[in-house]
Design a protein around this nucleic acid. Structure first.
Length: 564
RNA sequence: GUGCCAGUAGCUCAGCCGGAUAGAGCAACGGACUUCUAAUCCGUGGGUCGGGUGUUCGAAUCAUCUCUGGCACGCCA
């Protein structure tokens, strides 16, 4: 058993079903087709530990008002062998379940038994999932969109792993196509400007204006001098790209690594062109009538795929588009490599591409539901209450590297994971570095450090957490203790929900709640100096809290300091 | 013009497959350190859930209209 909530849900559903059957037998209710029963934790403590609205859902079938339906069920409940202590009918027809405290003590046992594995569930059942994120153009440094996508994608991958999926983290390197061409033209222009003067060489209008381009050229010249002046433009660009691209990719890799992200696969777009996979993909579409030709270009047939318009796959100069490569790439994910599920993280500005990509999977017999695109809204940086603009082109952009230097990995990852992907994110740079209660990162880390301090003090006195079997957990009955245990018991459920919604932000909020419950406990109860049996029980509680906080922080790749 | 995302407390946001008196953090105000870390805790105030209409026993949640902000509609990615 991994999740106490599952067990309780099963018990509640089971006793409720039996109550319905008993009513049917007695004739107090007609035969009822039960819907999927929702068992939820009610908002208010006064409404019990769990509740269900099933009586209201079936009131039409029961031919009784919601409340009367619940009342008919009431006498037929049998709680034997369950955690349930009593039930109440409340409000318009809710059935509220009050549980014996055993479930909380069992939760502590589970935590102590599973330790760092506590929270693992198996909703994924080993399904092979590919999570592709960041996938930035290697033409310059990573920006804030990449930063958010990185934190989100990495956490989604971690959550899915915890939830029992077989996860591959992947970075798609856009090392082919138009962007690279512009990269080469920009490098060439800077190179020529260096020798011939800035006014003599025109910089391409849609080139990359960043300082990093100039730096690449400078260090190239330091090593190789003017040898490219005598070459053709094509050779020159090629040489400069061959020089600068690997450097950029390496930097991206290093920045992401210091951001706490390690990929399983770095997938090159160029390799799809070189291997002929792109051509094969286009040929397949052509042969099966999914393309049309017009104006000398090959288009994806939008009408046939249910899209509003056609999409260019091969330009009239014979060069395939990004779209063509992307179709080949996803075909590779599903067919060549056999992933059951692919999750792509894209900035919201790419949302127009979602429908097209999904539709383009159909000709290959791939269920478009297997591709799930998570769109995240873009980021606005604030400093001194003003927007700090970011643009890859100005050269003054704040890169992910700059951000990590300024606020650190913990704050960056925490803040990027506080909000749901769909909401716009305002990142307050001043707040992120503030070492105060305004900064939520410290709040959670502080809870962890406080616990470690208790454990350290006790260890110095020769007291270490005992085996949970040797402790009388029923001594834990203060409100603050109950609340804390309740929070800890929720963790596997939080993992399940985060995986289902692909919203790891709920874990960030969850760990703040755990910290909050702990701090309240800390102020109300003592561990050290209490009578030994109580001290041991609280030691288990505190240690379990430490385990949960550490597990969550580790999952979102944030440090859990033992001292602060 | 069409489409996507967002609009909930002063600020930043949860809640959104319909359910009980709409929540949290920060900010504001008032309290708590001779005791395991006060980077903490306890308490108080704060809302026409952008607006209208509809569906329903019941709407922040669904439908529809409308307003505001962001984004996308390219032989860019």
């Amino acid at each position: 058993m991994n999740n106490i909530f599952d067990k309780i849900r099963e018990q509640i559903i089971s006793v409720t079903k039996e109550a319905f059957l008993a009513c049917e037998k007695k004739g107090t209710l007609p035969k009822i087709e039960l819907p999927d029963m929702a068992v939820e934790v009610p908002r208010e403590r006064g409404f019990g530990d769990f509740s269900t609205n099933v009586a209201m859902q079936v009131s039409k079938q029961a031919k009784l008002p919601p409340r009367k339906t619940a009342e008919a069920l009431y006498p037929e409940f049998n709680f034997e062998g369950t955690y349930i202590e009593k039930i109440e009918i409340a409000g318009p027809g809710f059935i509220n379940f009050y549980l014996k405290r055993d479930w909380l003590y069992d939760a502590l046992q589970l935590i102590q038994q599973k330790r760092e594995k506590y929270g693992e569930v198996d909703v994924g059942k080993g399904v092979k999932v590919n999570v592709e994120f960041v996938s930035a153009n290697p033409t310059g440094p990573l920006h804030m969109g990449n930063a958010r996508g990185g934190a989100l994608g990495d956490c989604i991958a971690s959550v899915l792993k915890k939830a029992g999926y077989d996860v591959t983290r992947e970075f798609y390197i856009n090392d082919a196509g138009n962007q690279i061409e512009r990269f080469g033209m920009s490098l060439e222009a800077r190179y020529l400007q260096h020798f011939m003067g800035e006014d003599k060489v025109e910089f391409p209008e849609d080139g990359y204006h960043g300082e990093d381009i100039i730096e690449h050229v400078k260090s190239y010249i330091d090593q190789y001098g003017d040898i490219l002046l005598s070459k053709t433009s094509e050779e020159r660009q090629q040489a400069l790209v061959d020089y600068a691209l690997p450097i950029n990719i390496q930097r991206i890799r290093e920045t992401l690594s210091s951001y706490g992200i390690e990929y399983d696969v770095w997938f090159s777009e160029k390799s799809l062109h070189d291997s002929g996979a792109v051509k094969e993909t286009i040929d397949f579409l052509k042969e099966n009538g999914y393309t049309v030709e017009k104006d000398g270009a090959i288009w994806l047939n939008g009408e046939k795929l249910g899209l509003d318009k056609d999409e260019v796959l091969v330009r009239n100069n014979g060069v395939p588009t990004y779209m063509a490569a992307d179709i080949a790439y996803h075909r590779n994910k599903f067919i060549t490599r056999g992933f059951d599920w692919a999750i792509d993280l894209w900035g919201a500005d790419h949302h127009g591409h979602v429908g097209r990509m999904k539709a383009a999977m159909k000709p290959f017999g791939i269920d478009s539901d297997k591709l799930h695109v998570v769109l995240f809204q873009l980021v606005r940086l604030y400093r001194n209450g003003e927007i700090a603009r970011m643009s890859k082109r100005t050269g003054k952009a704040i890169s992910l590297g700059d951000l990590l230097e300024e606020v650190g990995r913990d704050a960056a990852r925490f803040i990027f994971n506080m909000k749901t992907s769909g909401s716009h994110l305002d990142f307050d740079l001043d707040l992120a570095v503030k070492q105060s209660n305004e900064n939520p990162v410290f709040y959670v880390q502080y809870a962890h450090a406080r616990i470690c301090s208790i454990l350290r003090k006790l260890a110095e006195e020769g007291v270490v957490p005992p085996s949970v079997d040797q402790v009388d957990l029923t001594l834990l009955k203060e409100n603050e203790e109950i609340e804390l245990m309740r929070k800890l018991a929720e963790y596997p459920e939080e993992i399940t929900l985060s995986a289902k919604t692909l919203e790891p932000s709920r874990l960030t909020r969850y760990v703040m709640e755990v910290a909050s419950s702990f701090h309240s406990f800390y102020n109300a109860c003592r561990v050290r100096g209490e009578e030994e049996k109580l001290m041991m029980a609280r030691l288990i509680l505190v240690d379990s809290t430490r385990i949960v906080i550490k597990n969550v922080l580790e999952l979102i790749s944030i440090s859990a300091p033992e001292k602060m």
